[in-house]
Write a protein that binds this DNA or RNA. Structure first.
Length: 568
RNA sequence: CGGGGUGUGGCUCAGUCCGGUUAGAGCGCGUGGUUUGGGACCAUGAGGUCGGAGGUUCGAAUCCUCUCACCCCGACCA
């Protein structure tokens, strides 16, 4: 491609609204433009990179035996009503009506749509297993789109759904996707951290997220320093064993604590470790009040709590409910009470000796609180967030925290959709059987952004060769028309050799051309200037580093191949 | 939704506090010329309802009210 006839609107300065490097560089290199908040235009160069990622995903999905579909992006409300998600999805789903008042969703995901087609396509166990996928636009009314293409309202996703006869089959489908995903990201030149993840309200057992470590990541990961335990914070467990307090159990006593409500206030007031307090927080789980009791030095992991409760909706109870449940203003709740409220205790609570907790009376706390004697631990779960430094649940070594961008997610869906949408096939015995599903997503746009995030320097992008929009950046530094003609020949040679060449034939100063080449970040740069016109010397430079290599035209193709081979 | 911030030519920004001629700079763009191995130089030119609406005033980019958009932090969300 000749740049003189291409669209390559590079920017010398950082756009004022881009705060992360991938967004900045994608704008500056002329890959994308913003249409409005959370919506982006792909310019030709950006589209080429996007298509490379898509091609790799397709190849690997097909190789794994999945079948590509193309689904409507506007999906009928009836479909969502069947699964029950028309009501449960909430405002993140765009809903529209046609002129007759019929309701539709701009699909944020396609479980229903795929389940419905597959239902019409299968009737026997012989039709399974089946893995179907598409690469298509998704719409989500994000509360806050940000980081350019990393979190947008409209994005491209590869979503796949597997259907199997039983859990064993599902596991095979799942493992096939685990392998495919590793292959896909590896081929994209993207180093990902597969972590154990929560399956959310979907239920199901296994779940793995493919994360790219990044300061701008929106998820927190806990990684063990010595074994292979990796989990996102929503799921992460940690080894228990901490005993708080000590000595002989003291008598339960009331302590006047006027206006001392928060854990920090309490720690200052009682002059003791925050872990000695039993923080008691009232939630509404599907509308019913519950009290969660955790050590004061720990944060509640609401996902773990919701899972323990098997609740679909969990929210902090409003003050009025707290007062009703505890009989005291907010800040004085505790498990030592006669009131009948469902209580869940974190695993660490039983290890507290002579703890301190709210007395369910205004301005009063109990000290010398001992589990078992002063209250009964009925329901005990892991309810707290793991943080950096906590011991690994597998090996006990301290874990560290990293932020990550989620680029892929695979999980076992279970029967949620096949049951609610009444999918069944006949098994070998001729009995109706409900297939079990798996679900596998990749955020395509954010994969591109993550690659840029992972591979760049202060001058621009450094594309892995598999994703680079072109293979070779041919920089022609010419003055005379005859020189330009000679460069055309060179461009022709390289194109015929099978390279995708971005050829800078512009009448511009060398500085501009080199700067643009660095920004665009194609893996191999070939420079043809004075040396070429005088002695036939060409220069090859790899964007990934290394020295400038001089070659003659006869050895050029070979040298480029070598250079590309040396690139990630 | 709460808090904070920004809207001035294609881009990055100054000017706004303290109202006062034809609204500025750099980059980019057009033309002519000189240049040409790391974002050249000279000359000349085009391009702006100062986000929008209303108001105050002799006079508004500047003050007031409303509104829209965008960015950041948080909340929310699977």
């Amino acid at each position: 491609m000749r740049i003189s006839r291409y669209i390559l609107p590079t920017l010398k300065e950082d756009p004022s609204d881009a705060v992360v490097s991938s967004h900045r560089l994608m704008m500056r290199a002329g890959l994308i433009r913003k249409e409005s908040a959370g919506m982006y235009v792909y310019l030709p160069l950006g589209l080429r990179a996007l298509r490379k990622v898509i091609a790799i995903i397709k190849e690997e999905m097909d190789a794994a035996g999945a079948h590509e579909f193309l689904m409507p992006e506007m999906t009928s409300a009836d479909l969502w009503r069947e699964s029950g998600r028309w009501d449960s999805m909430g405002p993140e789903m765009f809903r529209i009506r046609d002129r007759n008042g019929l309701e539709y969703a701009l699909a944020p995901t396609h479980e229903e749509a795929f389940t419905a087609v597959v239902r019409s396509l299968i009737s026997s166990y012989r039709d399974l297993p089946l893995n179907v996928y598409q690469i298509n636009t998704k719409f989500r009314d994000e509360i806050r789109p940000r980081y350019g293409v990393i979190r947008s309202k409209e994005f491209i996703m590869k979503d796949a759904y597997s259907f199997d006869m039983d859990e064993k089959g599902l596991d095979e489908s799942y493992q096939a996707m685990r392998r495919a995903y590793r292959q896909i990201f590896q081929r994209c030149g993207l180093e990902t951290i597969p972590v154990q993840a929560d399956t959310g309200s979907m239920g199901g057992s296994d779940s793995e997220e493919f994360m790219v470590a990044s300061e701008v990541g929106e998820e927190v990961l806990l990684l063990c320093g010595s074994c292979d335990y990796k989990a996102n914070q929503e799921k992460a467990e940690f080894r228990r064993g901490d005993r708080k307090g000590g000595g002989a159990p003291e008598a339960l006593r009331e302590v006047s604590t006027p206006d001392v409500k928060t854990i920090a206030d309490l720690a200052a007031f009682f002059q003791c470790d925050e872990g000695l307090f039993l923080k008691s927080i009232v939630y509404l789980a599907d509308g019913a009040p519950v009290m969660a009791v955790v050590p004061g030095n720990r944060e509640i992991n609401e996902l773990k709590l919701a899972r323990a409760l098997k609740a679909t909706a969990l929210e902090l109870a409003p003050d009025s409910v707290v007062e009703e449940v505890t009989g005291a203003p907010v800040g004085f709740a505790g498990p030592v009470t006669d009131k009948k409220v469902r209580m869940l205790f974190d695993l660490a609570v039983k290890g507290v000796v002579n703890g301190i907790t709210g007395a369910n009376k205004k301005d009063l706390h109990y000290a010398g609180v001992n589990p078992g004697r002063d209250f009964t631990i009925g329901e005990e779960y892991d309810l707290t967030k793991a943080v950096a430094g906590d011991p690994c649940p597998k090996c006990g070594s301290p874990m560290r925290e990293t932020k990550g961008i989620e680029v892929g997610h695979i999980f076992k869906l279970g029967y949620k959709y096949t049951k609610s949408m009444k999918v069944s096939v006949l098994n070998e015995q001729g009995r109706e059987t409900t297939p079990i599903m798996g679900c596998y997503g990749i955020g395509v746009n954010r994969t591109v952004a993550a690659i840029v995030e992972q591979h760049h320097d202060d001058k621009g992008i450094i594309w892995p060769k598999a994703i680079a929009p072109f293979d070779v950046h041919l920089v022609g530094i010419w003055k005379e028309e005859q020189e330009l003609r000679a460069l055309e020949g060179l461009y022709d040679t390289l194109s015929k050799a099978g390279f995708e060449v971005l050829y800078d034939d512009r009448k511009a100063s060398p500085g501009i051309k080199f700067a643009d080449a660095d920004l665009a970040g194609l893996p191999v740069r070939v420079t043809a200037g004075k040396g070429y016109f005088q002695t036939g010397d060409l220069e090859i430079k790899c964007r990934w580093g290394g020295e400038v290599v001089k070659v003659k035209e006869s050895g050029l193709v070979e040298a480029i191949r070598d250079s590309l081979a040396g690139c990630p």
